[in-house]
Design a protein around this nucleic acid. Structure first.
Length: 330
DNA sequence: AAGCCGGGGGC
DNA sequence: GCCCCAGGCTT
């Protein structure tokens, strides 16, 4: 890992945010690109948030990128551009919760805060035989207290790194290496033969299907795009205009014309064709079905009002776009 | 407490 | 396909 042995709190911060819900191998290229583009807190704070988002394209959980930028501005305004040095000040930053504040505090400053991530919860729940459902504040608190008590006060960073490594390599979610484990003789889950049952998790709701009927409206080698708003998925990302339905049934020419008239003041489609290929993207709690149509207009485009823009495809590729749009434009 | 927010890798 | 993940924020 490129951040191994690094003490710079800024770099540790960036790596921890990237690694939230993200595999190391997936995060490494993003980490390298990020530090090259934004080598310091100051450079991050002084860059447009859109440039941070663009670098985040394809990584998911885009609020992480927006919060990184927001926090950098906060550090410049409230800490004179120097990364804060206390756990409380670190945890105040947007996008930094208990885990990340503990990770930065211990790795950068050697402060005695135990990290509690999915690895730690799994290890502690198995070792102490916590059979309850783990997504409760009671269990979270219990795990935090037990881990904090175990933390080696002289070497918090080594302890935190070690317990997470142990979870990733030995006390794994599936097929843990109990036969080779030095802890198994005192592990309650192992002695009760309940390793596979712990940690216990909630059964999750099925994902919802959504159908986005995207319109590729090309004129003069440019196409119409828009920036997404705050409410829904993909906050601030760019995409094509679309109509949403709850079935995969194609939109009629009439429906699309009505939409274009209302939304963009466009009247009259000269030709409409639906593409054979569609795309399905899986999000944490939704399936997004992307269905694409090419639209040719009778008349010239009118002036657009926000959030619509008129750009070339190569320009669009440089903006922050959802994976689905990336698949489509290639 | 529950819901929301992406994406890739392992099996 | 389903499960997993070096979480945090909003409701």
């Amino acid at each position: 890992m490129p951040w191994k042995g690094v003490k710079d709190p800024y770099k540790i911060w960036v790596s921890e945010i990237i690694l939230q819900q993200t595999q190391v191998s997936q995060g490494i290229p993003y980490y390298n690109r990020f530090l090259k583009a934004f080598p310091t807190v100051m450079s991050l704070a002084n860059s447009p948030v859109d440039s941070v988002l663009a670098l985040w394209t394809g990584l998911g959980y885009y609020s992480r990128a927006r919060n990184l930028h927001k926090a950098a501005v906060h550090i410049v305004e409230h800490h004179n551009g120097k990364f804060p040095k206390s756990f409380e000040e670190i945890k105040e930053l947007p996008g930094i919760g208990d885990y990340t504040a503990s990770a930065i505090s211990s790795f950068a400053y050697g402060l005695p805060y135990a990290v509690v991530d999915a690895n730690v919860i799994r290890i502690i729940a198995r070792y102490y035989g916590i059979e309850e459902e783990i997504h409760t504040s009671k269990v979270r608190k219990q795990v935090k207290e037990k881990t904090q008590a175990l933390l080696t006060k002289k070497k918090p960073a080594a302890f935190n790194q070690a317990i997470m490594d142990f979870g990733a390599t030995v006390c794994k979610p599936k097929e843990p290496l109990c036969e080779d484990c030095v802890m198994s003789s005192s592990c309650i889950a192992f002695s009760l033969d309940k390793v596979a049952l712990i940690p216990r998790k909630k059964t999750k709701k099925p994902r919802r299907d959504r159908y986005f009927h995207y319109l590729e409206i090309i004129q003069n080698k440019k196409l119409i795009i828009r920036q997404r708003g705050e409410k829904d998925i993909w906050h601030s990302l760019y995409e094509l205009p679309y109509l949403e339905t709850n079935s995969k049934r194609s939109m009629s020419k009439k429906q699309i014309e009505s939409y274009l008239k209302k939304e963009l003041g466009i009247s009259g489609i000269s030709n409409l064709s639906k593409l054979d290929k569609s795309y399905k993207q899986t999000l944490s709690h939704q399936f997004i079905h992307g269905i694409f149509y090419k639209v040719h207009l009778k008349e010239d485009l009118p002036r657009f009002k926000a959030p619509y823009l008129h750009v070339t495809v190569s320009k669009l590729k440089k903006l922050a776009i959802p994976k689905l749009i990336d698949w489509y434009i290639g």
